[in-house]
Design a protein around this nucleic acid. Structure first.
Lengths: 192, 192, 192, 192
DNA sequence: TATGAATGAGATTTCATTCAT
DNA sequence: AATGAATGAAATCTCATTCAT
């Protein structure tokens, strides 16, 4: 057999790396960072313990990569240019559903992320990434409430943020029974 | 000297027990359950490691006691009979502020509780207590939305729940800068 | 009330001391020395942990007292002057039964003693006491086999010692079902 | 370099496992189960503490493995088919010497085993293994005494068992000075 | 690159002993 | 004398990380 080209090797590394990240996300989200062991992650990824260390320096760095990667992906998702006119009720509704979809596709990530930022010690590590994501989020959503004749656009924007966070939280706790559609309609009715 | 009476002893144990629970709450809330050590808790409580085991069977049981105690306290708080007429805008506002006060007084507890229920493995342990608290919460808030001429009382109640959860979440993340009063007014405007 | 006389106090101490020794024997015999805790012994004796230390310097000293006391009692039992003529078959049988009775009355003690001398580290502690007891035992039994026309009195004495030890061992293991009488008859038939 | 093959791995684990069992036997036999520490065993085996837990779940399970393994080995030894005719005086003598050899080769094991079955709590754990060994032992020795014109074959068998147990006990206590040959001759004279 | 045995620091837990009451 | 809360050294056990193969 001919030796693999460096491009093939690169692709292989990339794939293995993702495999490990996926496994780590699943395990961290279910057991918490400190409750997870390298052993669990390796088993979930279907590789040997030692191999993790050829892809990630340490358990801590693995977590950091995971969060950075997840937030970047989410930012990219958020900043995909929307099609059609903005600032209409329809655009608001479409954006809202997009947010929910973003969350549903990456539930484990958001669960893990929520757990982490609730711990001051952990939160610190991700302050930079979190701030950067928050800015994206704000630039996407902030302007909307400035267009409406709200008595207090700033407060309404904060409240809407709380609605999204609370919705996410409640969806994590009961993903199956939650009456999502009806609640979304109610949000649109109250905020759009 | 003569030994302490059993009354003295009981009071001593009660006091120590609370002292340890307070310390554990602080440490668990800041480091997470798995990131906390018995050593940290003992140091925070100002007692020797070994003493914790004379009051609580294990680290795990200590956590369980903490959560059970906290939820019971919160339930008691919620069910204190309100004064004045109910189902008015004013009563709604008063209740809302009471909820926020409850949360602010026990921020560490709610932070810890939130972290825990995000982890399936942990959540299971507290299912019974959590359900019992949820029922109290629902019986207090559920009826309100049945009185209003809401198109969908059920969805509105769920949404209001998400608002409370999201507000709590955001208050944990930035307790000092949060424009709480303005957001509360906005909530009252939209939901009362 | 008049203060207790020093004689009364003395008697009280004596009684308490015995109470603790009895408890310690029971616990040590059932859990082994290292598997027993001061707490267990105190509970069994019906007194507080701290009190043990006003009667015995340490757990180790308590064990030593126990063994010394037990061996002394056994020596005293052995050297009680037998009534009637010695060196007859009947005397042999009587002595044998007396040995068995001695053992049965203090089963826990012999169980503990056996456990201890099987461990070199423990055995050392009791070497002096054990030797002293062995001498008593030998002086009582040694002469018997010198009277009989045994090919090898010394070996027969050793073998008889093994019989007694093995009998004790087997009686510990199945105290209820053991066909003691039949085995004793067999011993008498073979050795008397 | 390439990783070890699973055959190599298995051999390695087998070897290490035996190494740890040997070390554990030595330490347990000398200090007693509760008087032994994992540290002592690891040091004796020449490996790190943590490694023991990769081979045995817990200290307790290590003990259980040790006993099970030892009794199985002894059973195998006992049931090796004897050569030559049975039920003769010579066969009896040969068997007796075989028993003694079995014991001498595994003195530490029998010392440990004796210590353990004297403690009810420990004995329970090994009841199954102990019974199974006892049956083997009985099937090997039981038949002998049914052949002889003994007044009471059952009692004689029990007594012979006690002789073996007592001999073992006494050999543990003074392995070097014991006049084994003379005592064995005496046993053969009395029982064969 | 890939494996999993091996390490040892550090976590949880136990318990003999002390001591204030 | 008697109590049992409190201590802390030492035990058991865990797990991130290293390393020989």
């Amino acid at each position: 057999m001919s030796p693999r080209t460096s491009t093939q090797l690169q692709a292989l590394r990339e794939e293995r790396s993702m495999q490990i990240l996926r496994a780590a996300l699943k395990v961290f989200a279910n057991q918490g960072y400190n409750g997870s062991t390298i052993e669990m992650i390796a088993r979930e990824a279907g590789v040997a313990k030692g191999l993790l260390y050829s892809y990630f320096e340490s358990k801590e760095k693995l977590l950091e990569s995971l969060i950075t990667y997840g937030l970047e992906k989410a930012s990219a998702f958020l900043t995909e240019p929307p099609d059609g006119p903005q600032h209409t009720k329809e655009a608001f509704a479409a954006n809202l559903r997009k947010m929910v979809q973003l969350f549903r596709e990456e539930q484990d990530f958001w669960r893990l992320y929520s757990m982490l930022i609730l711990q001051p010690k952990m939160a610190e590590k991700f302050k930079a990434d979190a701030m950067s994501f928050l800015e994206t989020y704000m630039s996407v959503y902030g302007s909307y409430f400035q267009q409406k004749q709200s008595k207090n656009p700033m407060a309404e924007a904060m409240l809407f943020g709380a609605v999204l966070d609370g919705l996410m939280f409640d969806l994590i706790l009961s993903p199956d029974e939650y009456p999502l559609e009806e609640v979304l309609d109610m949000i649109i009715e109250k905020f759009a």
